[in-house]
Design a protein around this nucleic acid. Structure first.
Lengths: 180, 180
DNA sequence: GAGGCCATGTAATGAGTTACATGATTAT
DNA sequence: ATAATCATGTAACTCATTACATGGCCTC
C-alpha cells in the first residue's frame, strides 16, 4: 500500500525526474507555481527528506558544486517507485485550500459585503488568469525539461481560476434570487 | 494580524454561524463535501478546538442533549471575529492537493500511460460533475440553512471538475504535439 | 441483548512551519 | 567591503491523522 501522506517524497522524485537538482533548486521549483495548486514545501522539510530518499536508494548525488551544493538525480529504483505511485489510486485525502474555504463561509457576511467580495474575486480571478496565460506562453517558449511540471501547474491555474470566476458568478445569481 | 493557519477555527465558526451544532454534527458537515474542496478535520481535532473557542468566548453552549451532547452557537464576539477574517486578505498559503500533484508529475510516465491516465481522468471528472450537479439540485430543494456551505462546496466542485476536464484535454493535445 | 450509531475524549505519531544558525560566492 | 543571493542545516513548535478508549441511546 502507498502510505499516502508521503506526497512530498513523490513530489521530489517527480521534480528530480524532470532534471537533477539540489535542495535549493527544488525549493525554487516548488515556488514556480506548484506550491499554489498542488503542494508546497520549505527547505527545512526538503533537505531532510532528500537525505532520507538518498538513504533508501531512491535518489543519488550526481554532482557537487560550490558552497556545499549537492545535486541529486533519481535512481532506477526511484523512478520505478514514482511510476508505481502515479499509476496507483489517489488517496483522496482531504484537500486544504484556505481560499476556497473562505468562499464557503460567506453566508456570515451581509448581502452587500458578499456581493462586493464576489465581484472583487471575479475580477481578481480574471487578472490571475491573464497573467498565467502569459506565463504559460513564456515558459513554453523556453523549451526546458525542468519546466514541464511548472507549465502544467500554470495551465492548471488558468483553468482553476476560470472555474472560480464561473462559480463566483453563479453564487452572485443565487444571492440575487434570495434577495427577492 | 490574522495568524492564518487558524483556518480550522474559522471553518468551525462559519459552520456554527449557519446553525448551532455539536462536535459530532460538525464532523458530519465537513464530510458533506467541504473536506473535498476546502478543508477537512477529524473529530479528534474538532473537539479540542471547540473547547478552545469556548474558552475564548467565541462560541458558547446553547443546548445539551442525550449522551453528553453539547451544541454550540457562535457568540457576538465570534461572529465579529469571523467577519473580520473573511474581509481580511487571504494568506495565500500553500495549497495541498495530492490529486493535482499527481497530474503535474506525469512526465515520469510513458506517452501511452499518460494518455491513458488523462483519458480516464477526463471521464472520471465528467462523472463526478454529473453526480455533484445532481447533489446541488437535491440540497437546494431542501432549503435548509445548515446546507448553505455544503451547496456552495458542491457547486464549486462542479466547476472545479470542469476545469480538470479542460486541463486534461489541453495536456492531451500538448502530448500529441510533442509526439510529432 | 446485540448491533449500530451517537457522542466525546486522549495519546502517540507524523507532517509542516517558523525561527535560528552558519558560511560561501558573486556582483557592485 | 558590503549586500544579495546561494546553499545547507537543526530545533521548537503547531497542526493534523491514526489509534485507542469509553459509554449512552435506539431499534430490532
Amino acid at each position: 500500500m502507498y502510505d499516502d501522506a508521503m506526497a512530498l517524497r513523490y513530489a521530489l522524485l517527480g521534480l528530480l525526474n524532470d532534471a537533477p537538482a539540489s535542495g535549493y533548486e527544488l525549493t525554487q521549483r516548488f515556488a514556480l507555481g506548484i506550491d499554489r495548486y498542488a503542494w508546497s514545501a520549505k527547505h527545512s522539510q526538503i533537505y531532510p527528506e532528500l537525505r532520507k530518499l538518498e538513504g533508501e536508494g531512491l535518489i543519488e548525488v550526481v554532482g557537487e558544486g560550490a558552497r556545499g551544493k549537492r545535486s541529486y538525480g533519481v535512481t532506477e529504483a526511484g523512478r520505478a517507485r514514482l511510476r508505481d505511485w502515479l499509476l496507483s489510486e489517489p488517496s483522496a485525502k482531504g484537500t486544504r485550500n484556505e481560499f476556497v474555504l473562505r468562499l464557503f463561509l460567506m453566508s456570515a457576511l451581509t448581502n452587500e459585503e458578499a456581493v462586493q467580495l464576489l465581484t472583487d474575486l471575479s475580477k481578481f480571478a480574471e487578472a490571475e488568469q491573464a497573467e498565467l496565460t502569459a506565463k504559460v506562453a513564456e515558459l513554453q517558449a523556453r523549451d526546458d525539461a525542468t519546466l514541464t511540471a511548472p507549465v502544467f501547474a500554470a495551465q492548471y491555474g488558468v483553468h482553476a481560476y476560470g472555474a472560480i470566476r464561473e462559480w463566483a458568478n453563479w453564487v452572485l445569481t443565487e444571492l440575487a434570487k434570495k434577495r427577492d
